[in-house]
Design a protein around this nucleic acid. Structure first.
Length: 137
DNA sequence: TTTACATCACGTCAGCAGGG
DNA sequence: CCCTGCTGACGTGATGTAAA
């Protein structure tokens, strides 16, 4: 995930590190929303709203590697990467469980259908046996 | 009402598979 | 080979339920 330019207004921030005009790095809380965006010169500016929902909406921005120097910045970057990975895995696990539940539900309904079908076939077999078996009296 | 147990949903980690 | 997504396994907290 790399910085691919300006996030559109309305986008929800997953992870975003920006370098402001004075050169300082800014990190925004995941879940924040871009509400205003303006391009002044070659540096776009944004207004970030406080997080509302906790859920990511797909916009991922990262600090450019060249802008990280101090051990503290490197540590922050490592932490940021870990949090991003955990967040993605969290969502992936939820989705995985949802799919699995759906799959199990599907299997259960198929079992129900096959059980009914099997019962009917057994009944039909018994009927045919009765018809085809020689009369004893 | 309290307690013990079962079930569920979740977060995290580890390992694997596929893509670039 | 590295990165990323998927998924099984494990631990944990919340909630429901039956028995004392």
């Amino acid at each position: 995930m790399t910085n691919s330019g300006a996030p559109p207004p309305g986008a929800t921030i997953v992870q975003y590190a920006a370098q402001s005009a004075d050169g300082t790095q800014q990190f925004f809380v995941p879940g924040s929303q871009v509400v205003v965006q303006a391009a002044t010169g070659d540096m776009p500016t944004y207004q970030i709203r406080a997080p509302t929902t906790g859920l990511p909406q797909g916009v991922v921005m990262a600090a450019s590697p060249g802008s990280l120097h101090s051990p503290q910045q490197l540590a922050e970057e490592a932490t940021r990467k870990r949090e991003l990975r955990l967040m993605k895995n969290r969502e992936a696990a939820k989705e995985c469980r949802r799919r699995k539940k759906e799959y199990v539900k599907c299997l259960e309904s198929r079992v129900a259908v096959l059980e009914v079908q099997n019962k009917k076939l057994i009944e039909e077999l018994e009927t045919l046996k009765d018809i085809c078996s020689p009369k004893t009296n």
